[in-house]
Nucleic acid binder design. Structure first.
Length: 343
DNA sequence: GAGGGTCAAGTCCGT
DNA sequence: ACGGACTTGACCCTC
């Protein structure tokens, strides 16, 4: 099955890109969170009560989200879960809460049925820990926190009943740190088996591009972000490119996932929506890479969409647009119109 | 309820 | 030095 994925959030209308209001129906599909600052201002009892309530609410919301995604057309049954399922899990002041036996017992009991929904409905799941997760950092303390962050995600994966086989669930991060690919390689061995089963590495727009990521392809699958690659190299990489077969090999038989986003339309003033933007012309017109990085709300350029869909033959496509499921459906519709979806 | 300030964390680029 | 981009815009508080 070929899939297009949805990232982290469910919305019903474009105005919810900004924010989902408390009484919006979409609220129930999305995770709640809190802040360290707010928790620290409360009495311990109040703070713990809030964390417990968020735990219950978020287990419910990811269950509803996965279930809803599982009712979509088969080609859209893929969703990235927000990292905020259990907020402050790796925050030193509140970590103790999440390691309380009663909290873990609750998580274990109630997350497994959520994972069962995903398995029953064929929903492909993933996480994308935040940019603070830097296994290749040259600062040892950051590496420690990053391993904790990976293990936080791995705990949830395990409770959901995944992480048992290679890439039954994806936890994707960047290289990012000064130690580069070797830093990832060295710390890879410190991860739990479940975290290692899930780990993938994605190419960045600025620092570590596809070629450097491919240096890790013997231990970890490579997630190609085609927009990052375009931003960094100015190249519309083609499915026939030899590097693609190296990426496919890194997934060892599992269908790869790539990421697809497009630059914001307002940064490409007056650009036709049916032509591929020319990277060199944009840069020489004074647009910097910073501007090219920012993700659009919708998939406004049909030519870029067609190029992205040309990769669908070999990979599932995670749709990183601000309009979330609305943008995923937009791309799905273009795929259907192009005859890429049967019936 | 709306609006504005605040929010754990790394790393980079551009001003 | 600092804002903003990536990662999840949501929460909290005041009016």
């Amino acid at each position: 099955m070929k899939r297009l994925g949805i990232v982290c959030k469910w919305i019903d209308t474009p105005d919810q890109i900004e924010s989902v209001k408390p009484k919006d129906d979409a609220k129930k599909y999305n995770t709640a969170t809190t802040t360290v600052a707010w928790l620290s201002r409360q009495k311990r009892e109040v703070a713990e009560e809030r964390l417990w309530q968020i735990m219950e609410q978020n287990i419910s919301s990811i269950g509803l989200l996965i279930s809803r995604v599982g009712d979509l057309e088969p080609e859209m049954r893929m969703v990235r879960l927000s990292s905020e399922v259990f907020p402050c899990y790796t925050e030193p002041a509140w970590r103790y809460f999440w390691f309380r036996p009663d909290v873990r017992a609750y998580a274990e009991k109630h997350l497994l049925p959520v994972g069962d929904i995903a398995r029953a409905k064929g929903v492909r799941l993933s996480f994308h820990p935040g940019p603070f997760t830097v296994l290749a950092s040259d600062r040892p303390a950051i590496v420690e926190l990053s391993i904790q962050e990976m293990e936080y995600h791995a705990d949830i994966v395990r409770w959901l009943g995944f992480g048992k086989t290679f890439q039954d669930f994806k936890i994707n991060i960047h290289i990012s740190g000064k130690r580069g690919p070797d830093g990832v390689r060295q710390n890879y061995g410190r991860l739990s088996p479940e975290a290692r089963n899930c780990l993938t590495i994605e190419n960045e727009e600025m620092t570590y591009g596809l070629d450097q990521c491919l240096g890790l392809s013997d231990i970890v699958p490579i997630v190609l972000d085609i927009h990052h690659h375009w931003t960094r190299e100015g190249e519309y990489i083609q499915a026939s490119d030899p590097r693609i077969s190296r990426i496919i090999d890194s997934w060892r038989g599992v269908r790869p996932v790539i990421h697809y986003s497009v630059s914001r339309e307002e940064h490409l003033v007056g650009h036709a929506s049916d032509r591929l933007p020319a990277h060199d012309a944009l840069i020489s017109s004074g647009l910097n890479k910073q501007k090219l990085r920012a993700h659009s709300d919708f998939y406004w350029n049909t030519a870029v969409n067609s190029w992205a869909l040309s990769h669908w033959q070999w990979a599932d496509i995670m749709c990183e647009c601000k309009s979330k499921n609305l943008g995923t459906r937009q791309l799905w519709q273009q795929a259907k119109n192009a005859g890429l979806i049967s019936q």
